[in-house]
C-alpha cells in the first residue's frame, strides 16, 4: 500500500498517511503534502535544512512539522523533496530536510495552512496512521 493517498474534501484537500514508525509517518506526511502542492517537484538549487520541534502531543507535532515545511517554502523558497525524519519521541522531533531552493514563481497549488481539523494520530496493527487536511 502506498504510504499516503489524497483524501477528498469539498473545498480543500487532505492526505491519509500510514507508517510503520512515527518517523516514517512524519516523513511520508511531508511527501504527501508536497505532492498536493506540486506533483512533479520543481527545479532549484539543492539545499538542506534541519528542523527540530516539540509539541504537547503527536497530533500537534505533525501539524507543526508540516507547517514548518510550508514556512520554508513561502519564506525561504525551499521546496522539500527528501524529508528524513530521524527521531520522533516524547513530543519532540528532529529532521534533516533535503530539497531545492526555487529559482522563481511556481504555478502550483497554494496550501494556505495545515489544519487541526479532526486530526488524530492512531496506532494500527502495522504502526501508525493519520489524516491531515490542508486549507487551500
Amino acid at each position: 500500500m502506498a504510504p499516503y493517498r489524497i483524501v477528498e474534501h469539498t473545498a480543500d484537500a487532505g492526505i491519509h498517511v500510514t507508517g510503520g514508525t512515527l518517523e516514517e509517518l512524519f516523513s511520508d506526511a511531508a511527501r504527501g503534502m508536497m505532492s498536493v502542492i506540486c506533483e512533479v517537484p520543481p527545479e532549484g538549487w539543492p539545499e538542506t535544512h534541519v528542523v527540530e520541534l516539540s509539541a504537547p502531543d503527536a497530533e500537534s507535532l505533525i501539524v507543526d512539522w508540516l507547517a514548518e515545511l510550508l514556512y520554508l517554502l513561502e519564506v525561504k523558497n525551499f521546496f522539500t523533496t527528501d524529508p528524513r525524519v530521524e527521531k520522533v519521541e516524547g513530543g519532540a522531533m528532529r529532521a534533516v530536510v533535503g530539497g531545492a531552493r526555487l529559482r522563481g514563481v511556481v504555478h502550483a497549488t497554494e496550501i494556505k495552512a495545515v489544519t487541526h481539523h479532526m486530526i488524530s494520530v492512531d496506532r494500527t496493527m502495522n504502526g501508525f496512521e493519520t489524516t491531515i487536511y490542508f486549507d487551500l
Partner: peptide, 24 residues
C-alpha cells in the same frame, strides 16, 4: 496569525476545560 493563535489556543482549551468536537 491564525496558525500562531491556534497553537496558543490548543493549550488554552485544556486550561479552560473545554471539550471540543474538533480541534480546529
Amino acid at each position: 496569525v491564525c496558525d500562531d493563535a491556534i497553537r496558543t489556543m490548543r493549550e488554552a482549551v485544556v486550561r479552560y476545560g473545554y471539550e471540543l468536537p474538533d480541534r480546529q
